[in-house]
Design a protein around this nucleic acid. Structure first.
Lengths: 138, 138
DNA sequence: GATGCCAATTAGACACAGTCCAATCCATCC
DNA sequence: GGATGGATTGGACTGTGTCTAATTGGCATC
């Protein structure tokens, strides 16, 4: 999937490819995340989407972000107890979290080797692995 | 530090060793976590502490858990957007999180090798690394 | 034992992220 | 142009966690 061009037309195709009906609001929300390639909280998405004219409701932003997560268009990043971040990068990668600024940075998982993890209990499957390095100014 | 015996007397000593004035409430809260060696949310701690006679207030539970984290007596585990878990195990270890049941299990960090992590930006220091494997019944 | 001090605790108000719900809107199909 | 059904909306609601002002309680000093 090529996300280099984030025109609203392209994004509509991306949504369709993930089985999502591309409405105006959904395209705006996808655009907020993809055009920035940043980690945004739901509130930040709401604020960005509403800088343009039409008011989009809070409920729609939350509904849509959850829908995108379910359809694997974006990923939740849980690093801060006070809010969830949403990540338009769904390829395998990890995160550096600056606990002072709240800024998240990506680490490509291809560069990292992790060995010695235990076997999962039988009947269990991995849904995902998060690696979070918490940093501050030293 | 030997946490094998979790009498309230021993816990008072543990608190003092971490520079914490051991009050009744604080000892009960420490006891709730250490005697179970489990990952508990603040609400679970509150419920356990109040099973015994004296009512301990919600504010005290939150204050105390935050104090314990600050004094490195316990660790926060952030895996669920809706609540923080507190972990009496402060040695280096990672977590398996069952997204269906909400149950957390430890992985000893000594068994795991992680290589290829990038250098931190200059002037930054690591405060901690979290590894969370999210699992479900497959 | 009485007194004063200060930290710890308390109840309750508050803040905020996120969810729920019933009413409305709107794109599509006939 | 209706009818249909999914999407959106505002507003009420929930649950976690924080704040604050008032009270309590342990401890030292007299």
């Amino acid at each position: 999937m090529d996300y280099r061009h984030y025109s609203r037309d392209n994004l509509a195709d991306v949504l369709r490819a993930h089985g999502i009906n591309p409405t105006h609001q959904r395209i705006e929300i996808a655009h907020a995340l993809y055009s920035r390639q940043e980690h945004l909280s739901a509130d930040q998405v709401l604020a960005i989407v509403n800088q343009r004219h039409p008011e989009t409701s809070r409920a729609t932003v939350y509904n849509t972000l959850n829908l995108f997560v379910e359809k694997k268009l974006i990923r939740e990043v849980i690093v801060d107890p006070s809010r969830v971040f949403y990540d338009p990068n769904t390829s395998a990668h990890y995160h550096i979290y600056n606990v002072e600024t709240g800024r998240l940075t990506d680490i490509d998982a291809a560069d990292v080797r992790i060995e010695g993890l235990p076997e999962l209990p039988r009947g269990m499957v991995t849904e995902g692995m998060d690696v979070i390095i918490r940093v501050r100014r030293g």
